[in-house]
Simulated scan of single mutants.
Amino acid sequence: MRRDGGGSEKKLEELKGEFLNLAAHELRSPLGIVRGYVSMLREGLVPPDQMRRVLTLLASKTDEMAALIDEMLEAARTESAGIEYAMTRLNLVDVVDDALTAMEPLLNGPHRLVEQGPRAAIPVRGDRRRLTMVLTNLIDNAVKYSPQGGDIEVGWSVEGRHAVVRVRDEGLGVDEADLGMLFTRFGRIVTPENSHVRGTGLGLYLARDITTRHGGDITVESQEGRGSTFTVSLPLAAGGNGTS
Rank of each mutant, 00 (worst) to 15 (best):
L20N: 13
N21V: 08
H25V: 10
H25Q: 15
E26W: 06
E26Q: 14
L27C: 11
L31G: 13
V34H: 04
R35I: 07
Y37W: 09
Y37N: 04
M40N: 12
L41W: 00
R42N: 04
V46A: 10
P48H: 06
Q50E: 11
R52Q: 14
T56C: 12
T56S: 14
L57P: 07
T62S: 15
E64V: 00
M65A: 14
A66F: 13
A67E: 06
L68T: 04
D70V: 00
M72P: 02
E74T: 06
E74M: 08
E74R: 02
A75F: 02
A76S: 11
T78V: 03
T78E: 06
A81L: 09
G82Y: 08
I83Q: 09
E84P: 04
A86Y: 14
R89F: 01
D97Q: 03
D97M: 00
D98W: 05
T101G: 02
T101Y: 07
L107I: 05
P110Y: 12
R112K: 12
R112V: 14
R112A: 09
E115N: 08
Q116S: 15
G117I: 08
R119Q: 11
A120N: 06
P123Y: 04
V124Y: 05
V124N: 05
R125C: 10
G126D: 03
R129K: 08
